[in-house]
Design a protein around this nucleic acid. Sequence first.
DNA 1: TGCAATGCTTGTG
DNA 2: CACAAGCATTGCA
Length: 183
Amino acid sequence: MSVNWFSVDTPLPTGPMRVAVTEQGVVAAACSAQGAAGLPRGPELGDPDRDRRAVVVKERLAEYFAGRRRDLELPIDWRLAAGPQLAVLQTLQRTVGFGSTITYGKLAERSGVFGDGPEERALAAQAVGSIMGSCPLSLLVPCHRVVAADGLGGFGGGAAGMELKRWLLTLEGVLAPTLDWSS
DNA sequence: TGCAATGCTTGTG
DNA sequence: CACAAGCATTGCA
């Protein structure tokens, strides 16, 4: 099973994305260099414009960024995730749509892979935080729609990552463009 | 306002 | 392979 990489131009503050596809679908998508490391390496796609998968990905992403598409509806290859991570990511991808958000704790609860006791909730939230931080499928799995119970929460990649998260949430209308969340 | 806890991920030895 | 440390957090004191 081969993994092929290609770049996708985006209007994101972080610049173009790196996307990897297999015969099954999109296996990885990194907005910045954050997730790029540690992901399965593979040859660069010779001519992305001639690869149907790459073309579709670019098309969908472009429409999404333009606000014309609510769901990317791209085939996803989940091989990088397993066990609880897989459950959480799929739950997130399946139940949290464009323009809506969910808290770390709620997502953990909804995934059902963690205990449902009140104390396990805090721990589950951290676990989910870890999982999101290592999520190799930025955008395809809406990691940016997961927020803290009392605010925005964080995002991988430091300041650049936060900027990206705000950018995405603003695009989806979750955040008012003028609202200052820096506090 | 500040701290302790709990599980999963990831980086070394 | 085994071990240890850190979190994109929460909830209570």
